[in-house]
């Protein structure tokens, strides 16, 4: 149990996928304009990431390895992720049309989100067990969601601030993300 908790903590805080490993930064910047879409995106990524971590581990363990087709790993993972993301988009469009329109392009963009592919490849690369892989996926998405929602709160306040003209919008958001990344470095070395 302690070991699972350690993986969760390290995936969420210590080497956070957005602020320490710099994966999935473009949806991080794109969706954090408004808090509602950020929460929607965080939930969608959590759903997709946990599902794909489990699915890709099984795909790798029961299909690719026995058929010794590891070299297909990258393509197979991408197809699987695309299927799961498309499924999510259909569900979101059906149940929450406003959220679907608000997230717009960024929902299908999760397929190409480097964090998703990164986690799945990492799980397989580090020979993690099934349980550990899923927890790693969940931890990564938790970290992504947490930082995304906090950052959306920040940007919501920043777009009311009297920022100099040249820095309004994305530049000041990048500087804020930079300072947050600096702060996240404080967790360096934890969880060893």
């Amino acid at each position: 149990m302690k070991e699972v908790l350690l993986i969760l903590l390290s995936a969420t805080l210590v080497n956070n996928f957005v602020l320490t490993r710099f994966l999935g930064v473009c949806p991080f910047m794109g969706v954090s304009q408004r808090l509602e879409t950020a929460v929607g995106m965080a939930m969608a990524v959590t759903y997709v990431l946990t599902l794909t971590s489990a699915a890709t581990w099984m795909l790798n363990a029961y299909i690719l390895v026995p058929l010794s087709a590891e070299h297909l790993r990258l393509m197979a993972f991408i197809v699987l992720i695309a299927v799961v993301v498309q499924m999510t988009e259909i569900l979101v469009r059906h149940f929450m049309p406003a959220l679907h329109r608000a997230m717009g392009l960024f929902l299908p963009l999760i397929t190409t989100n480097c964090a998703v592919l990164g986690v799945t490849l990492l799980n397989v690369g580090e020979q993690l067990g099934f349980m550990a892989a899923t927890v790693q996926g969940f931890g990564a998405s938790l970290g992504f969601g947490l930082v995304l929602i906090v950052f959306a709160g920040l940007r919501d306040r920043l777009d009311g601030c009297d920022v100099p003209e040249a820095f309004k919008g994305t530049p000041i958001a990048l500087i804020t993300a930079g300072i947050m990344a600096m702060a996240f470095l404080g967790f360096d070395g934890m969880g060893r």
Partner: peptide, 26 residues
């Protein structure tokens, strides 16, 4: 308290302040 106890850096105050500053709007 936790950062110096389990992390690398001897003084965790500045990191903790920056981390929590970002959560103030929430």
């Amino acid at each position: 308290y936790l950062i110096p106890a389990y992390g690398l850096y001897p003084v965790g105050l500045s990191f903790a302040v920056l981390l929590m500053n970002s959560t103030v709007p929430l």
